[in-house]
Amino acid sequence: MSYSNPLSNALGANGPLESDVMPVLNHAAQQADGLLQRGADALRENRTFFKEGAERTQAQVNTYVREEPLKSLLMAAAAGAVLMGVVGLMLRGRSHHSH
């Protein structure tokens, strides 16, 4: 006695659903491919945008440091002090929770 799988028969080369299912699957695959392509294009455009922005900012910082070296040094020291204060508070808060 031979058992057949109705699903494989329906989706097989001569199955009645092949003419209905395959166009839908092909259309879905084409849409997915289009979405992936647009996503890749958007990533490339944004990468260029952010890279150019970072380069402009770096040029502006370099110019400011050359024109105002003392102010630049004081601002860097202040930023470092603030950062160390925040890290110190975080570490102190963590040590209080562990006791």
Rank of each mutant, 00 (worst) to 15 (best):
A76E: 07
V82A: 14
E68C: 03
A76V: 05
R38Y: 04
E67T: 04
G39C: 01
M84F: 06
E68R: 12
L35R: 09
S72N: 00
A78N: 12
A10S: 03
A78Y: 11
V86R: 12
V87H: 11
P23D: 07
S2C: 01
A29L: 09
G12L: 03
H99L: 11
E18G: 05
L91W: 05
E18Q: 14
M1W: 06
P6G: 05
P16G: 10
Q37M: 07
N26Y: 03
R66S: 12
H27W: 06
E45C: 00
D41T: 05
V21L: 15
S4H: 14
V21Q: 07
A76T: 08
E52D: 15
A40I: 02
V86L: 15
H96G: 01
A78R: 14
A42F: 09
S8C: 02
L17H: 05
E67D: 11
V87P: 05
S2W: 05
S19K: 15
P16T: 05
A76N: 09
P6Y: 02
V21G: 04
E67N: 05
S72P: 01
L43M: 09
L25W: 04
E55W: 05
L17W: 09
V82D: 15
A32N: 09
H99W: 10
S98F: 03
A81Q: 14
N5E: 13
Q37W: 00
L36P: 00
Q30P: 01
D20S: 12
L91N: 04
V65K: 07
M1D: 01
S8G: 00
V86I: 14
D20P: 04
G39I: 02
G15P: 03
V82K: 15
A76H: 08
A79V: 07
R56T: 08
M75H: 11
V21H: 09
L35F: 13
R38W: 02
G12F: 02
G34T: 06
Q30L: 08
A42I: 06
H97C: 06
D20F: 07
Q58P: 00
L35W: 10
R92W: 11
N9W: 07
K71C: 02
R44K: 15
R38N: 07
V87D: 09
A77E: 12
R38V: 03
M75W: 00
N14K: 04
E55K: 03
A77C: 07
L35G: 00
A59E: 10
A29I: 01
L73Y: 12
Y3I: 12
R94Y: 10
G12P: 02
T57R: 08
P16V: 07
A10Y: 00
R94P: 00
P69D: 03
A54N: 13
N62F: 01
V24C: 04
G85L: 11
A40L: 08
G88V: 07
M1F: 11
F50L: 15
E52R: 13
E18K: 13
P16M: 08
A10K: 02
A28R: 11
A76L: 13
A54L: 13
L25I: 13
A79Y: 11
A79E: 14
L43C: 03
A76K: 07
